[in-house]
Write a protein that binds this DNA or RNA. Structure first.
Length: 153
DNA sequence: GCCAACGTTGGC
DNA sequence: GCCAACGTTGGC
């Protein structure tokens, strides 16, 4: 099983929204590296840190689980969608997604500043200067460290 | 709102 | 294939 970090702006879609809906298609990702992680490497049962970006504070707000195999992102085929991409065709999809199901909403957000201050997390991709990738792999140690931080204090 | 970092686009 | 221009991301 692998571990991931997936960013979302809570004004658009938050861990609380996921808790209410139970499951959500992670659509609209239009970055090739992030797409490749979803399309090629994610498996049902993988766990993901749900990261709130552009938030107060930004940080990890909960946990989700990959709910099934990757599949073409239907929003790319929909002309009315803000994620429409005419270069993605049903017979040759360019963009893919996974479905994410709710696991846990932390009682407190593990903030970005707290993550930066935690030596065990210093190698996380999201903490590297200039990194903007919305989906990144995390190690089991990093995942468990975040979980431990969320469950203490 | 600012701006640095980064990815994409398109002219050549 | 290069690279300047442009758009986006996301912390602050």
């Amino acid at each position: 099983m692998k571990y991931w970090l997936m960013k979302s702006e809570p004004d658009v879609f938050s861990i609380q929204d996921l808790a209410l809906k139970g499951k959500e298609a992670w659509d609209g990702v239009r970055n090739y590296q992030a797409r490749n992680y979803m399309r090629d490497e994610m498996r049902e049962g993988d766990l993901a840190l749900f990261y709130h970006s552009n938030a107060k504070p930004s940080g990890v707000a909960g946990i989700g689980r990959i709910a099934g195999p990757s599949r073409p992102d239907p929003s790319a085929f929909e002309p009315k969608s803000p994620y429409y991409d005419p270069a993605s065709r049903p017979e040759a999809p360019r963009w893919w997604l996974v479905d994410v199901e709710f696991v846990e909403c932390f009682e407190r957000v593990v903030s970005l500043s707290e993550m930066k201050a935690t030596p065990e997390l210093s190698r996380m991709i999201i903490l590297r200067p200039g990194n903007r990738l919305s989906i990144t792999p995390v190690s089991a140690g990093e995942f468990n460290c975040i979980l431990a931080l969320a469950h203490t204090k």
